[in-house]
Design a protein around this nucleic acid. Structure first.
Lengths: 209, 209
DNA sequence: TTGTAACTCCCCGAAAAAGGGGATTTTATT
DNA sequence: AATAAAATCCCCTTTTTCGGGGAGTTACAA
């Protein structure tokens, strides 16, 4: 039976490569490309797509949002994320959003092919090379990134926007002293000695958009 | 005459695509791939490479360093950067380092082909779609990122690592008051009111690795 | 219901950063 | 040799953060 794959990826050079991998007649697959998340979502309506190969860095919406939307509207669809982002919490967010696979772009083309075909075949979760380690935090030089609460995340973003405790307090209708407490907890959780390294870690860890 | 191209790129899926583009027998080219910057540099010794297609985000050294090394040792070699990084100062740094071309990965494969062949052919500088605008700062929602000096960059990185003015002074054998002056200049240049937003802007602007 | 995690608020003092000056020496570049 | 840019150093005051405490209130789960 012919199955259809949608490739959501804004780099033609990558989507070309993907299309070629899965255009082998022996596989009996059909590939369609979409350059943005919204185009991809639009295409899902009315087209019987079996699996989506998804880049997380898209020009319009994030791959995580795409995944949530797609899975909500088409629960049967399979989604495999293929990305450069080798960050633990990104993987976790994608899996929470319902992704069926996660493969790094540093992977061999055979790995990518194998992973996608496995998800398409038996529906099992597939994690590419290095991804499992990433989740366990074993990864190369990966300082374990902390879990932060909703309020902490909110305050972290405002700190990164340059607001003082005073201003954040006014914005959130809480005491600046409370903001200070959250701030101290953030420093503790990130094992940061001051705001500078806190923000650096948080930005490069993807806590701040 | 047969010309040789070295592809320095850590994503097999991308280098596959590039190899395929330039493997057209009519072009009379030979492609070799290298997955890391150091492997690429090592390969240049003893192999008559005419042009390097270079990714800027490499696992070991940065594309900018690669470019400088390669151009110093082999002034005749042509280098075309192909990257996702659509940031003005990255383009500027690459061109300063001697790059002969700069193409974004969002470009069509034909653009990439055309650009590389042009550089290889007449040796002219080639800037891909959107890159020229980037330099002029016309780019979509691009807040103009400032030019900073070597010393400022050095101090910026140390600030981001969580060091205080005192500690930075000790490390660089200068007075903490001097560090403070540089710090104030950084705040001015980045139009930042405090360290938090300074670091956020700097990290997401690619000033800090 | 009995924790426990999250959120809230407060105290103190010390350290660091920010805002606003001024001024001299190096180092390129023309 | 002259100019400009970069780097260096110093003063002052005020604001903000940091370190190290304590403590009450939801809200939700075992």
């Amino acid at each position: 039976m012919l199955k259809q794959i949608l490739i959501v990826e804004d780099h033609p050079i990558v989507s070309d490569s993907l299309e070629r991998i899965f255009s082998d007649p022996a596989l009996n697959l059909k590939c369609i490309g979409a350059a943005t998340g919204n185009k991809g979502l639009a295409f899902l309506n009315g087209n019987p797509i079996d699996l989506v190969i998804l880049d997380i860095n898209l020009p319009d919406i994030s791959g995580i949002e795409f995944c949530k939307s797609a899975k909500t509207r088409f629960p049967g669809i399979k989604i495999v994320a293929v990305t450069t982002l080798a960050q633990r919490h990104v993987v976790e967010q994608m899996l929470d959003a319902g992704a069926d696979g996660f493969i790094l772009k540093t992977s061999d083309t055979d790995d990518i092919k194998h992973g996608v075909l496995q998800v398409l075949g038996n529906g099992e979760l597939y994690l590419g090379k290095g991804v499992k380690d990433l989740i366990r935090g074993i990864s190369s030089g990966n300082i374990e990134l902390p879990m932060i609460t909703r309020r902490e995340s909110e305050i972290l973003k405002l700190i990164a926007d340059g607001l003082t405790n005073q201003e954040i307090g006014e914005k959130l209708f809480i005491s600046p002293l409370t903001v200070d407490t959250h701030r101290k907890n953030l420093l503790l959780k990130f094992n940061a000695r001051n705001t500078a390294i806190l923000i650096k870690t948080a930005v490069s860890g993807g806590y701040i958009s």
